[in-house]
Deep mutational scan, measured.
Amino acid sequence: MQFKLIINGKTLKGEITIEAVDAAEAEKFFKQYANDNGIDGEWTYDDATKTFTVTE
């Protein structure tokens, strides 16, 4: 399945899409990606669109 991350950071904005087995695997990848890029904010997930959003 495809999952999307929308980044609304103070210094980094954009979107990335990955293939993952389930939402838990996608969330783990996205949170590591955000951590690696210094993004720390509020997370939301929309199951209907398979979209995670992080907002700083």
Results as ranks from 00 to 15, higher is better:
E42W: 08
T11W: 11
E42M: 12
D46A: 13
Y45S: 15
Y33T: 04
D36G: 13
Q2H: 04
K50R: 14
G9K: 12
T55F: 05
K13L: 14
A23K: 13
A26Y: 00
E25L: 13
A48F: 14
E27Q: 07
F3D: 00
F30I: 01
T49C: 02
D22Y: 03
W43D: 00
Q2W: 14
N35T: 07
G14C: 02
T51Q: 13
I18D: 02
V54D: 01
E27T: 11
E15G: 03
A26C: 01
G41I: 01
E15V: 05
I18Q: 08
D46K: 08
Y45E: 04
K50N: 09
F3Y: 03
Y33W: 03
A23S: 04
K31H: 13
I18G: 08
D40T: 09
T55E: 15
Q32D: 11
K13D: 14
V54I: 08
G9C: 02
K50P: 02
F30W: 01
A34K: 01
V54A: 14
D36H: 11
G41R: 01
Q2V: 07
A34D: 01
I16L: 15
I16E: 08
G14M: 08
A24S: 15
E56F: 05
A24E: 02
I39S: 03
A48C: 04
N8I: 08
I7C: 02
G41V: 01
K50S: 12
G38K: 06
N8Q: 10
W43I: 03
E42N: 14
K4C: 01
K50G: 11
A26F: 00
T53Q: 11
Q32K: 03
I18S: 05
I6V: 12
T53W: 09
T55Q: 06
F52P: 00
T17P: 06
L12P: 01
K50L: 06
D40V: 14
F3K: 00
I39R: 01
A48P: 06
T44W: 03
F52N: 00
K28M: 03
T51L: 14
K31S: 06
A48L: 07
A34M: 04
K13N: 07
F3C: 01
Q32G: 07
G41C: 01
K13A: 13
G14H: 08
G38C: 02
E56M: 07
W43M: 11
M1E: 03
D36A: 09
D47Q: 08
G14W: 07
Q2S: 12
K28V: 12
D46G: 11
Y45N: 07
T44P: 00
T55H: 12
G41W: 07
L5R: 00
K10T: 10
K31V: 14
T49N: 07
E15N: 02
K13I: 11
F29M: 13
K4I: 05
T44V: 06
A24Q: 13
I16V: 15
M1S: 13
D40G: 10
N35V: 13
T17Q: 11
M1N: 09
I7N: 15
T55K: 12
L12N: 11
T11Y: 07
V21P: 12
F29W: 10
E56H: 14
K31A: 08
T17F: 06
I7Y: 10
A24R: 03
K31R: 09
K10G: 06
T53F: 15
Y33H: 05
K50M: 03
K31C: 01
K4W: 09
N35I: 08
E15P: 03
D40Q: 02
W43L: 10
D47Y: 04
F30K: 00
D40C: 02
I16P: 03
K4N: 02
N37V: 09
A26L: 00
V21Y: 13
I7M: 11
I7R: 00
E15F: 01
E19H: 12
K4G: 14
N8M: 09
A20S: 08
D22T: 03
D46I: 10
A20F: 11
W43N: 00
E56P: 01
T11N: 08
A20L: 04
N37C: 04
G38M: 10
F3T: 01
K4H: 06
N8S: 09
G9Y: 04
A24K: 11
E27V: 06
E56K: 01
N35S: 11
I18N: 08
N35A: 12
K50H: 09
A34V: 05
F30S: 15
L5K: 00
T17R: 06
A26G: 06
T53I: 07
A26Q: 00
T11A: 10
Y33A: 05
A48H: 08
I6C: 03
F30R: 00
G14P: 13
A34N: 13
K13C: 03
Y45A: 10
N37W: 06
V54Q: 01
K10P: 08
E42F: 05
A48G: 10
N37K: 09
T49M: 09
T44F: 14
G14F: 02
A26K: 00
T49Y: 12
Y45H: 09
M1H: 05
Y45R: 12
I18W: 04
K31M: 15
T17V: 09
E19L: 10
D47V: 14
D47S: 14
D22H: 06
K31G: 09
A20R: 04
A48Q: 13
A24C: 03
I6A: 05
D40H: 12
D36T: 12
G41E: 01
N37E: 09
L5Y: 01
N35D: 15
N37H: 12
D36I: 14
I7L: 15
K10F: 05
A24Y: 14
E42T: 05
A26R: 00
F3E: 00
F30Y: 04
L12W: 04
I16W: 07
D36V: 05
F30L: 09
A24V: 11
M1R: 09
D36F: 10
K10Y: 15
I6N: 13
Q32C: 01
K10I: 10
Y33E: 12
I7G: 07
T55M: 04
N8Y: 13
W43G: 00
N35W: 05
L12R: 01
V54N: 07
A24T: 08
D47M: 08
T11F: 13
A23P: 12
T44L: 05
E15T: 05
F29A: 08
V21A: 05
I7A: 07
I7S: 09
D46C: 03
L5Q: 00
T17E: 15
F29L: 09
D46E: 12
M1L: 05
T11S: 15
K10E: 09
E25R: 09
T17W: 14
T55L: 06
I39G: 01
E56Y: 05
F30V: 04
D22K: 12
L12K: 14
N35P: 03
E15C: 03
L12V: 08
I16A: 15
D22A: 11
L5W: 04
L12H: 05
G38T: 06
N8K: 12
E27W: 04
T11D: 15
E56R: 01
V21K: 06
K31L: 10
I6K: 15
Y33C: 02
T53A: 07
A23C: 03
A26E: 00
A24D: 13
A26M: 01
T17K: 13
A20I: 09
L12E: 08
K13W: 15
Y45C: 01
I6Y: 11
I18M: 12
L5C: 02
T49K: 04
N8V: 04
K4R: 02
T49I: 05
D22G: 12
E27R: 09
T44R: 13
K4Q: 09
T44G: 09
K10H: 06
A20G: 11
T44D: 11
K13Y: 11
E56V: 05
I6S: 08
A48T: 07
G41M: 01
D46T: 05
T53R: 11
E27P: 00
N35K: 10
I7V: 12
Y33N: 03
Q2T: 07
D46N: 15
E25Y: 11
K4Y: 14
T17H: 06
E19S: 13
K31I: 13
K28D: 04
L12Q: 07
E42P: 14
